[in-house]
Structure formats: C-alpha cells, structure tokens
Amino acid sequence: MHGTVDGFSYGIVTPLVAYLMACLGGALGLRCTTRALLVSHSWRPGWLALGSAAIGSGIWTMHFIAMMGFTVAGAPIHYDKPTTYASLGVAVVMVGVGIFIVGYKGATGTALFTGGTITGLGIASMHYLGMAGMRLNGDVEYNTLTVAVSVAIAMAAATAALWAAGQVRGFLWSVGASLVMGLAVSGMHYTGMAAVSVHLHATGAPPPGDSTAGLLAPMLIGPLAFLCLAGVVVLFDPLMVRGKPDRTRVEHKPGVPANNHPPRPDRRVPPRPRQVAHHEPRTPQNR
C-alpha cells in the first residue's frame, strides 16, 4: 500500500527554522575557515577543526528540524539512535576533510573543486544516512534521478560557499557564503525528500525506536550548545569581524625581522656632490 507522504506538516515553520540553522552553522564554520587563512600554520588546524564541527552540527541540526515536519499517513516514524548519531559524525568528518583541503591549499583550482566536492558529498551522506536511521512500518524507496540531482546541488553550492569564504574580503563575504551554504543544505534536503516514496506494510507493529520528539531534546542541547560556544569564540575575536590578517602571529621567515614588519628601504640622504672651488687667475691687480 502506497503511503501518503507530507514533508510540510507544520507549514513553512520547519523549513524556515531549518534553513536558519543551516545558515548559522555555515556562518560560524565558514568564518572560522576564513580566519584560518589569516593566521600562522600553528593556529590553522584549530580554526579549521572548529569550522568543520560548526558546519557539521549545523547541517545535522537542520536535517532533523526539517524532519519534524515529515510524516507518513498511518505510519508512526521512529529513529535508530546509533545510525542517527553516526550521521552527525559522518557530516563533521567529511566536511572537515573538504575544509582542511581548502584551508591549506587555498580556495582556487583543484583544491577548491576537491574540497567542495567532498564537503557536498558529506552533506549528502549525512542526509541519506540519517534517512537510513528512520524506522516505520513500511519500505522507503528513492527515485535515482532525483537523488543524483540532490547530490549535485550539494556539491555545487558547497563549492561556491567555500570559494566565497576563501576570498578573505571581510565579514560580508562570509555572511553571503553562509547563505549559500544554507541554501546548499536546505536545497539538497528537500530535493532528496522529493525522491522519497513509502510503501506501507499491510500488517505488523511499528518497529522499535525513538520518536522525533525523543531525539529533539539531545539534538538541541548538544549541537546547539556547541554552536553557541563557537559563536562566542567568533564574537570575541575582533579579527573575525574585520577580516584582516593576524599580524602578530606571522611566522618568522629568513630575511624578515622578528617584529614581523618588512625591512624599510634605506632612507639616508645621499651625500651632496663635492663642489670644486674655481680660482680666478692671479693678475697684477689682485696680487
């Protein structure tokens, strides 16, 4: 029996809140990525790791807020905890790989394409692994073409977001990049959900698992608390807002003074040319 699927049970509320969560995670994560490009190599891994965790937490939270509005008529939905939280780990790790590539190789050329592709695949993997943790009295099937389109959307938009973050042109660039990242996650999610069809079983009890409401509390307490912490770190770092390089942490290189300022040109005044005195010939009058 074909189940009636509704992805907007609460109207525009869940899509809007989900998009805002994706933008929040993207804003913090991409700003940390931008910050990593402005500091010395010793500080770069920490900023990139923080950015990876922020983006991963943001897209995972976005996914399950959006799933709050997903219902199947006549089939209560439950979730398997290990699979659900494994999707969070996959999101953080795969997004982290893409961000570290861009953070160390730069947001240009092959590095940008590779990092954006891996980041987009991380978003898609999180989504479909999270869907694999869904339990209901029926079988979930996907349209292959629509799934491929959703993955392509995630990769293209993630690449664009990383490119914008790598431009290092100030705070507004990171805001624009976060909006693109939120669009990548939300667009990928709802395109992927459009590929879903459910065939219900005629008999049988609902499978065991936790309800969406049961996952809501840890979902909000955990990732949202981390996003707030990341926001505090970003807020109290003035260079995050100005978008200027950290001049006090530039590594010392041969030929560069320890005060991190380039050598000033020699401003000494050149000596005046020596003037040769001209003597008048001696005449009887001036002897």
Score class of each variant (00 low, 15 high):
G96W: 09
G96K: 04
V97G: 08
G98V: 02
G98Q: 01
Y104G: 02
T108N: 12
G109D: 08
T110Y: 12
A111M: 02
F113Q: 11
L121A: 11
L121C: 14
L121E: 05
G122Y: 06
I123C: 07
Y128Q: 09
Y128P: 10
G130V: 07
G130Q: 06
M131W: 10
M131N: 09
M131C: 10
A132C: 03
G133S: 08
M134E: 06
M134N: 01
L136A: 04
G138T: 02
G138S: 02
V147C: 07
S150A: 07
V151Q: 08
A154E: 01
T159P: 00
T159H: 00
A161Q: 02
L162I: 03
W163P: 04
A164I: 15
W173P: 06
S178N: 06
V180W: 03
G182R: 05
L183Q: 05
S186W: 15
S186E: 05
A194D: 15
A194G: 13
A195R: 06
A195K: 05
V196C: 00
S197D: 15
L200N: 04
H201Y: 13
T203V: 14
T203L: 14
T203C: 11
A205S: 15
P206K: 09
P207G: 09
P208H: 13
S211M: 04
A217T: 15
P218K: 10
L220S: 13
F226Y: 15
G231W: 06
G231N: 03
V232S: 11
V232M: 14
V233L: 15
V233S: 11
V233R: 08
